[in-house]
């Protein structure tokens, strides 16, 4: 198996790493960099647990290879908070019951962050549509939708 050197910006820091050509990006993050906030739920691009932001857009990290991340800017769930200060979505998920077991949560936070970067005041239907690439088995989605709506309102000062 050939190996490649890649360099990328990860959660605000420039990193370099050597990766086997066939390593999945999700495995690279989790197993090589110990960023285990990115989850494995299906590894077939369906559940969204592995979602990350690549150059600001939501992407399922189980569907790409680590080498493809070369030169990109990546944000994982670990990169959402600023030090001790939670991202507005993280705080809203806590407050509005956006999580229970928490396994799907990193993926939903990332998908929601992507939505709010494109649409600052989504209605419920837009929220549901934007989150339709993620599966949560615990919440029935209501708490998640409530949380995203509240986060948007918070950002808009409404």
């Amino acid at each position: 198996m050939s190996h490649h050197w890649i360099s990328l910006t990860l959660n605000g820091e420039t990193i370099e790493a050597e990766v086997p050509a066939n390593r999945l990006l999700s495995d690279f993050l989790r197993d090589q960099l110990a960023l285990t906030g990115t989850k494995r739920g299906c590894e077939t691009g369906v559940c969204g647990a592995c979602s990350i932001l690549i150059d600001g857009e939501v992407s399922k990290s189980c569907l790409s290879l680590a080498v493809q991340a070369h030169g990109k800017t990546i944000t994982t769930v670990e990169g959402l908070a600023q030090g001790q200060a939670l991202h507005v979505l993280q705080a809203a998920f806590m407050e509005h019951g956006g999580l229970q077991c928490g396994y799907c949560t990193p993926g939903f936070l990332i998908a929601a962050a992507d939505l709010l970067s494109r649409n600052t005041s989504p209605d419920d239907a837009e929220i549901r549509k934007a989150l339709s690439g993620n599966i949560c088995r615990c919440t029935g989605y209501q708490g998640i939708v409530d949380a995203v709506r509240a986060a948007a309102e918070n950002l808009n000062g409404t």
């Binding site: 285990t36 906030g37 989850k39 769930v77 939670l86 993280q90 998920f93 806590m94 396994y103 949560t105």
Partner: peptide, 18 residues
């Protein structure tokens, strides 16, 4: 909120596979 919600939203809760 759940008392362990913060570690979950931070992506720092540890599951067996982590």
């Amino acid at each position: 909120p759940q008392i362990n919600a913060r570690e979950k939203v931070l992506g720092r809760a540890r599951y067996a596979g982590d």
